[in-house]
């Protein structure tokens, strides 16, 4: 087994393991349209323009 093959196989295993981990926990798959920068005391709905900020 040449060093290239060893490195390529390791990279494949890492990519597979990484994507398996990300998929299992759903990492970075939260809805992308969530506004999370909301402070306590918000006046209500983000789109009703009554937020305290």
């Amino acid at each position: 087994m040449t060093p290239f093959r060893v490195i390529f196989l390791l990279a494949c295993v890492l990519i597979l393991g990484g994507s398996g981990y990300l998929s299992y926990y759903g990492i970075w798959r939260e809805s992308s349209d969530l506004n999370t920068s909301v402070r306590a005391g918000s006046g209500g709905g983000y789109y009703s323009n009554t937020r305290v900020k």
């Binding site: 809805s31 506004n35 909301v38 918000s42 789109y47």
Partner: peptide, 20 residues
């Protein structure tokens, strides 16, 4: 229809707001 959702955690702190 335009939905507006706000979610608050156990401590009452807002987690997110969303309009969809």
């Amino acid at each position: 229809a335009w939905l507006e959702v706000s979610l608050y955690g156990p401590d009452g702190a807002p987690l997110f707001e969303a309009g969809r």
